[in-house]
Design a protein around this nucleic acid. Structure first.
Length: 420
DNA sequence: TCTGGGGTCCTAGGACCC
DNA sequence: TCTGGGGTCCTAGGACCC
């Protein structure tokens, strides 16, 4: 039996742990720049707020209805996530962290009361972290995801729903819209709906050949999983990311090359830091810049530039220099740029890294020590204490009107409880 | 005024090779 | 007059996920 644990409205729930006054009230957590709603409490959903809705559009309505809008605090969510995962891991050896708020669990064979075991998981996560979770149980990951939707939607399940027979699977699939199936996105569900395939069950009842022709291999995988044949394997040994991106929208349009260059240097140094964290070296990168795609009237420009490193590296200064060089090849004056970003690719583990014969080992060693020193100083609460001179501060350009304290990661922000 | 950020996998088509 | 067949690798773009 596979279990899928899903944190309910995760970002909102993280905020509520330290703001119990927000329980039972409409709350949304906003994306960077206070741009869009990315997490919405049930109360706020009932007011019609949906994921991805631009804040400036629903703000007046939200204020009229007493919605609390919070700027995203990803340091807090990341830390709360690791607490949830640690609690799960204390109960189940074999688990796979799927995202910041989800994990697949292999329910141990010796457990015969899966529902009871599941309820205990839900109870303990709630007790140890304050986060409410839902648990779906089934024979495949896709059915477990589907099951978890029921666990979350209907309080009668008390947090845990299990699909353990073909009849239950059929029933659940007949009640699930095809677009709500894990692996079937918006594009495919439009196509399916046009052909009258509206539920997960109808999709599962298509012929395998039809599914292959329409949706390729990934479609067949989903189809198998719905029919009870597990074929989405767990990730192999975690070797880190294959690519790492840092990008931001700016609070206002930027016209000057130097300003874009500062941002690109900051992105480059950010990806390099994350690259070192996973103990990898990268061999190439790409840089992109873009104007505001929502402004129909103004002139639009989008371009990316790619560059290879002479030698695989994890060095912030080298990566920033090459990113800046790439930027120069695509920057065009006269446009108002709204967004830019840097992606490093061709990442290999440090120990598998093939370096050229002509490199100076002494210089490499010096640089490596410098990076280690910078990482050490920047670890902890103030991650921006030392930065390369060419880089501006990414956060300085961001709009964050209502950000919560770093309750769990900053000594200055630890909550104070006063007895009267 | 104001519209997020970070990933993965698959496929089709072109370049290139023998 | 007549102009093959079969591979591999790489890339861009599309689809999906959170």
């Amino acid at each position: 039996m596979i279990g899928l644990v899903d944190c309910n409205n995760f970002f909102v729930s993280c905020e509520r742990v330290f703001r119990p006054d927000l329980l039972g009230r409409p709350v949304v957590v906003l994306s960077n720049n206070d741009g869009c709603a990315v997490a919405i409490s049930e109360e706020a959903k009932r007011l019609g707020i949906t994921r991805g809705m631009p804040y400036f559009k629903f703000r007046p309505m939200a204020e009229r209805n007493g919605v609390t809008a919070i700027s995203g605090n990803h340091r807090l969510y990341g830390d709360m996530s690791s607490r949830v995962m640690a609690t799960l891991h204390s109960m189940v050896d074999d688990m796979e962290v799927y995202s910041i708020d989800e994990a697949f669990l292999a329910i141990p064979r010796e457990v015969d009361d899966c529902i009871g075991f599941g309820r205990e998981i839900v109870r303990r996560v709630r007790r140890d972290t304050g986060i409410p979770v839902s648990l779906g149980l089934a024979a495949t990951k896709t059915l477990a995801k589907l099951s978890a939707r029921f666990a979350k939607k209907y309080p009668g399940y008390r947090g845990v729903c299990m699909i353990d027979t073909a009849e239950k699977a059929k029933k659940a699939m007949s009640l699930t819209a095809v677009g709500d199936v894990w692996g079937i996105g918006r594009r495919h569900s439009v196509r399916l709906n046009e052909c009258g395939i509206t539920t997960a069950l109808k999709f599962a009842e298509l012929s395998k050949d039809t599914v292959m022709r329409w949706f390729g291999l990934s479609g067949v995988r989903t189809w198998n999983e719905l029919n009870g044949i597990a074929c989405i394997e767990r990730d192999a040994i975690d070797t880190g990311h294959q690519s790492i991106t840092s990008s931001r929208s700016f609070a206002r349009d930027i016209y000057e090359f130097d300003e874009i260059r500062e941002a690109v240097s900051a992105f480059a140094s950010n990806v390099a830091r994350r690259l070192r964290k996973q103990n990898g070296f990268a061999a190439s990168l790409s840089v992109f810049i873009a104007t505001n795609r929502f402004h129909d009237g103004s002139r639009q420009y989008f371009n990316t530039a790619k560059a290879s490193f002479p030698d695989p590296t994890d060095d912030s200064l080298t990566i920033a220099a090459i990113a800046t060089g790439a930027l120069k090849t695509i920057f065009r004056a006269g446009y108002g740029y709204k967004k830019a970003g840097v992606t490093i690719t061709e990442i290999v583990p440090a120990e598998a890294c093939q370096r050229s014969l002509f490199i100076d080992p002494v210089e490499v060693e010096k640089r490596s020590r410098l990076m280690k020193a910078i990482d050490a100083i920047n670890s902890g609460a103030s991650s921006d204490r030392v930065r390369i001179a060419a880089a501006g501060s990414i956060s300085a350009k961001m709009r964050r009107e209502n950000v919560s304290p770093n309750y769990t990661t900053s000594l200055n922000d630890i909550i104070t409880v006063t007895a009267r």
